[in-house]
């Protein structure tokens, strides 16, 4: 059943697949990002309670959403790397981690900027905020551990195990606002999806938010594909196929 996956253990096959996939992520991603941002910032109505300040949600929620989503992607790569010892999966960890770290940083930063005018504070050690900060450190830790060994494959193994252990944090981030009293409000979108309730956001605000969430996913995925191809080329630079590829790009 998994036989169709086998060719991609070979770096060249993964490289070719990534080349083919890249435009399908990059082009709609950039388009949707422009549409979503213009819609959200210029056309969506202001909020009854927070006025114009609420618009930071259109960056904050997509970034926070995919900071967790890409972590799960990294965990799948880590599991393949640790159990099947596939080199492309090891490089995928390295390709995803900085993108995830940036998404996490964006969510923390926009959260602080949003928190100051609305809550009255930049930062509060509440469960949601703290768990998200731990996610940021996990991403940085994975990157640091990867680079900390003389032998790269040992580093990849260690980083993979840290990634897998870190998945414990993901449900904690998500459920923190339900399990404990927090300053952070409960979720708007996942409540509507998982409990099939009517979303607690007016449709003319919800749609641009959905567009932004998709746009962030596509753009971040395109960046991961680019990074992964760079990692592959860097390590396969002596192979004939990589040489041919680089020569072709020069001309």
């Amino acid at each position: 059943m998994w036989r169709w996956l086998h060719p991609y253990a070979k770096p060249e096959a993964t490289y070719r697949l990534n080349q083919k996939l890249l435009p399908w992520f990059a082009v709609p991603g950039i388009l949707l990002l422009v549409i979503g941002m213009v819609w959200a910032l210029l056309f969506a109505p202001a909020d009854y309670q927070q006025g114009e300040s609420y618009r930071i949600i259109f960056v904050h929620v997509p970034a926070a959403f995919w900071s967790m989503g890409f972590y799960m992607g990294m965990a799948i790569a880590a599991l393949s790397a640790v159990v099947w010892q596939i080199r492309t999966a090891e490089w995928a960890i390295l390709a995803i981690a900085p993108i995830g770290a940036v998404l996490t940083f964006i969510s923390l930063f926009t959260g602080a900027v949003w928190g100051k005018p609305m809550w009255g504070t930049w930062w509060e050690w509440d469960a949601r905020l703290t768990a998200q900060l731990i996610l940021f450190f996990l991403y940085l830790g994975v990157l640091a551990l990867y680079a900390a060994f003389e032998d790269e494959r040992t580093g990849a193994k260690a980083a993979g195990i840290l990634t897998l252990i870190g998945t414990v944090n993901i449900p904690i981030i998500h459920y923190s606002v339900y399990w404990w009293n927090t300053l952070h409000q409960q979720s708007t979108i996942s409540k509507a999806i998982t409990r099939l309730e009517k979303p607690s956001m007016a449709p003319e605000m919800l749609w641009p938010l959905v567009v932004c969430i998709f746009a962030f996913m596509l753009v971040a995925s395109a960046l991961v594909l680019l990074r992964l191809n760079n990692e592959i080329l860097k390590r396969e630079v002596r192979r004939p196929w990589a040489q041919a590829e680089l020569l072709e790009e020069k001309h």
């Binding site: 927070q50 509060e124 708007t188």
Partner: peptide
């Protein structure tokens, strides 16, 4: 500090 809920709607 102020809290706000997860509801967003136009005025």
């Amino acid at each position: 500090l102020a809290r706000h809920d997860e509801e967003y709607m136009p005025p």
